[in-house]
Simulated assay, not measured.
Amino acid sequence: MASPRPGRPVRGSTTGRPLMAALDLLGRRWTLRIIWELREGPVGARALLARCTGLSSSVLYQRLAELAEAGVIATGADGYLLTPLGAKLHGAIAPLDAWADEWAESRSAAD
């Protein structure tokens, strides 16, 4: 399956709207976790596999290829890293991380 791109139909949408393509890309198994693991700098494939318990090497390499094709990550001397566009994506995910922390606190208070 080709990497989602704005302007092309994606799973669940025939419009090709950029948001729909982004949701298709980010909704794939392990994609957000890989982006999260790259937030602090380059990481090699073996280290990514070690950090993502349960991730198979075949899925890892498929996701890395999709993210590279989408312009979100690149390969550097020290491993895979976020591109400037990928860093902006991480910035967009950071509020979700803050919300998840608040959600967790509210659920522990409710228990």
Rank of each mutant, 00 (worst) to 15 (best):
L49R: 08
L89C: 12
Q62E: 15
S57L: 04
T15V: 01
Y80S: 09
T53S: 14
L49Y: 04
Y80V: 08
S58K: 12
L60D: 06
R17F: 05
P9Q: 06
L26I: 04
V59D: 10
L25S: 06
R17W: 07
A47Y: 02
T83F: 00
T83P: 07
W36C: 10
P6H: 03
G79A: 10
S57V: 11
V43E: 14
A109Q: 12
G27M: 06
E40T: 13
R17A: 15
P18Y: 11
E66M: 11
W30R: 03
Y80L: 09
R28Q: 15
G54S: 09
R51F: 02
L38Q: 09
L25G: 01
A104M: 07
L49Q: 09
A98Q: 12
R107I: 15
W99K: 10
L81M: 12
W36E: 15
A77H: 11
L26C: 09
R51G: 08
D97G: 05
L81E: 15
A68V: 00
R29F: 05
S13M: 02
T75V: 11
L38K: 07
L82A: 08
G71S: 01
G12V: 02
A21F: 00
A65I: 00
A92K: 05
E105P: 00
A21D: 00
T15A: 09
G91H: 03
A47K: 13
M1S: 13
W30T: 08
L25D: 03
S108M: 12
G79I: 00
S57W: 02
L49I: 08
R11C: 01
M20V: 07
Y80P: 01
A87R: 14
A104D: 11
W103C: 10
D24C: 09
T14I: 11
D97Y: 05
G16A: 05
E102Y: 06
D101N: 08
I73S: 10
A87F: 02
A109K: 06
D97A: 12
G79Q: 06
I73A: 08
E69M: 05
G54W: 08
E37N: 13
G44I: 02
T31R: 03
L82S: 07
R63C: 02
L19N: 09
V59L: 14
P4M: 03
A47G: 04
D101H: 12
A70C: 06
S56K: 10
P95S: 05
G41D: 10
R107V: 15
S56H: 09
G54F: 02
R63H: 05
G79E: 08
R28A: 15
S13V: 03
W99T: 05
L23P: 00
A104N: 04
T15M: 01
D78I: 00
R63E: 03
A68S: 14
A22K: 01
V43S: 02
G79R: 02
A45P: 07
E40R: 14
G16C: 01
A65F: 09
A21H: 00
G86M: 03
G76N: 05
C52E: 11
S13P: 04
G76E: 13
L38M: 03
C52I: 10
A68K: 08
P18M: 03
A110K: 13
S56R: 14
A87C: 07
D24L: 01
E105T: 10
W99E: 13
